[in-house]
């Protein structure tokens, strides 16, 4: 198990009158090598949850186990550097993670900091930049000379350059244009499938991640109210509006189709092309049947 949360609660300002409980008794097990999507309305505790995963926040109750480390409430945490090398976190506003005077230095900072040789770090920086679809011409630029979207991609690249085992992203696509968002999603899918990374993505665009995510977690008012497969999410989609989320279009379409054809046992097709393929097969099956009767 890559990540395990046991009865985890987190309260901001726990010792003051202003305390705000952000997470309440969360129990989750996120398996290694899977892509997990996390959704929930604003204020549901998604970002707090992510920050527990590499020790930025420590649980106020319960225990968080990440890889071979345990962060338990009230206990002195282990050394966090190894954890942070293996868990790369891309924040909600990743552009704030940029601080060096050129993009290249920024991308190299992580690898160098965790002990990579400068040449190796430079090579990793270039690879990560390419993975994010940015041109090498930007390497010499100051981060502030990049556009909002480029900055965001650069910040994601700076985490990719560290080559973490677990990649945690908090709404990485929020200010990207749609195509960039889709490219990012397929990159994450690739990293998960081909390089065996464990990927956890918080998203407001459930529909775009649906074809790729293996598992889903739905957060609502600090609790994990759903945790399961794509099939499970489709089956329990009526619960989404109660959590401040609307039912994504692909799920609506699929449910209409499965209700009409009794496909409830099937793995749902949730991308336009997969859904179209399935419909064509249904149509030809229906046409074949007709021919037999005639």
């Amino acid at each position: 198990m890559a990540i395990q949360l046991e009865h985890v609660s987190y309260t901001y300002d726990a010792r003051s009158l202003l305390r705000q409980t952000a997470l309440q008794d969360v129990n989750l097990e996120l398996a290694e090598g899977l892509l997990t999507g996390i959704a929930g309305s604003s204020g549901s505790g998604k970002s707090t949850l992510l920050q527990l995963l590499n020790g930025i926040l420590l649980p106020t109750e319960g225990a968080v186990r990440v890889l071979d480390m345990t962060l338990a409430a009230g206990k002195k945490p282990p050394k966090l550097a190894p954890l942070r090398r293996r868990v790369g976190l891309v924040f909600q506003f990743p552009e704030q993670q940029l601080f060096a005077e050129t993009l290249e230095k920024d991308l190299m900072f992580g690898p160098v900091n965790f002990g990579a040789a400068p040449e190796d770090a430079a090579a990793r920086a270039r690879k990560a930049l390419k993975q994010m679809g940015l041109s090498e011409g930007l390497l010499s630029r100051h981060p502030l000379q990049l556009s909002g979207g480029q900055r965001r991609k650069a910040a994601i690249a700076s985490v990719l350059a560290m080559d973490p085992d677990i990649l945690v992203l908090d709404e990485p696509g929020a200010t990207l244009d749609q195509i960039s968002r889709m490219e990012l999603t397929s990159l994450l899918h690739y990293l998960c499938r081909e390089e065996g990374k464990t990927i956890i993505v918080v998203t407001h665009h459930i529909d775009e991640l649906l074809p790729y995510a293996d598992r889903w977690v739905i957060m609502h008012e600090g609790r994990a109210v759903f945790h399961g497969t794509r099939r499970g999410l489709v089956d329990e989609a009526e619960r989404l509006p109660g959590c401040g989320l609307s039912i994504p279009q692909p799920i609506r379409c699929w449910r209409e189709l499965e209700a009409a054809y009794g496909l409830q046992a099937e793995e749902p097709c949730l991308s336009p092309s997969a859904l179209a393929d399935r419909m064509v097969r249904l149509a030809s099956a229906a046409a074949g049947k007709e021919r037999v009767y005639a």
């Binding site: 244009d177 749609q178 195509i179 279009q249 379409c253 859904l275 179209a276 064509v280």
Partner: peptide, 21 residues
């Protein structure tokens, strides 16, 4: 040019069209 994609149902219609429907 804007790097946008059409809404889901429009995409589905385009995909079906590609498959001759």
């Amino acid at each position: 040019m804007c790097r946008m994609v059409p809404p889901f149902r429009t995409q589905l219609a385009l995909e079906l069209e590609k498959r001759g429907i």
